[in-house]
């Protein structure tokens, strides 16, 4: 394996890193929208209004059973024709992954809410609380702490899934890697480096999430039943 030279290596890295920034941008935006939408879907799914329950369940199931790449193509190629809007790669990516991740986050919320002891619902009901008050004051505060590991895991999955945006020409890390590999005819070095970059970033996030989890676990020792 010939050595491309240190300077060239640094130049190449300099080319790749803005791609990483774009990857993080898409992931961040998708999380920003995906989590609240996921909460709304979960509440709709658990709520008392039957038509809403069915609709939310359908949305969640549909976006969990269809592959993200199909969704991305649909939002990028198909939707613009349907509703007559300009769809940039970035917007299509954010829309796709917001909705896609929200379906998974909805399940995390649902699992977290369901994991809270039924006695908590009983006690709140007995002092006259409505469902809404119970969720807001009693259930969700307890559930959130339990859902952090699942959230972290889902977020990291999202980070990995956003590599797909390279297929609609959004200049994320994967896209730039493809470009660089084609230009330099050095796929082995480029793709190995990219794998390493992803690995490092994801490992860092995993460790970070683990640390946050541990701190919260310590703080909530007083919350144990």
């Amino acid at each position: 394996m010939s050595d491309p030279g240190l300077l060239r290596l640094i130049a190449d890295l300099g080319f790749l890193l803005p791609g990483l920034l774009n990857t993080l941008k898409v992931t961040g935006m998708a999380l920003l929208f995906g989590v609240p939408i996921g909460l709304l879907l979960a509440l709709g799914r658990l709520g008392g209004i039957r038509p809403l329950r069915v609709v939310c369940a359908f949305v969640i199931e549909f976006f969990r059973t269809t592959p993200p790449l199909v969704q991305l193509f649909w939002f990028f190629f198909a939707l613009p024709i349907l509703i007559n809007v300009e769809m940039t790669p970035f917007i299509a990516s954010v829309v796709t992954f917001s909705i896609q991740s929200s379906a998974f986050f909805a399940e995390v919320f649902r699992g977290g809410i369901n994991s809270i002891d039924k006695g908590q619902w009983e006690a709140s009901k007995a002092i006259g609380m409505t469902r809404g008050q119970t969720l807001r004051r009693i259930i969700l505060p307890q559930a959130v702490a339990r859902m952090i590991p699942a959230f972290a895991e889902r977020s990291i999955e999202l980070l990995k899934t956003t590599t797909l945006v390279s297929t609609v020409s959004f200049a994320d890390l994967m896209f730039r890697a493809n470009d660089l590999a084609q230009r330099t005819f050095r796929p082995l070095e480029v793709y190995s480096a990219v794998a390493l970059i992803y690995f490092t970033v994801i490992l860092l996030f995993s460790q970070g999430a683990g640390a946050v989890e541990r701190r919260l676990a310590r703080g909530s020792d007083t919350m144990a039943r």
Binding site: L159, K160, T161, T163, L164, S166, M174, A177, N178, A181, P187, L188, V190, Y191, S192, V194, A195, Y198, F199, I202, L203, S206
Partner: peptide
Amino acid sequence: VELFRNTPVLVQIIWFYFALPVL
């Protein structure tokens, strides 16, 4: 396990398709 869980699948596929043939 750590290597293959913490890298995206697409990166793995692309690596096997473009990078491995070099080796």
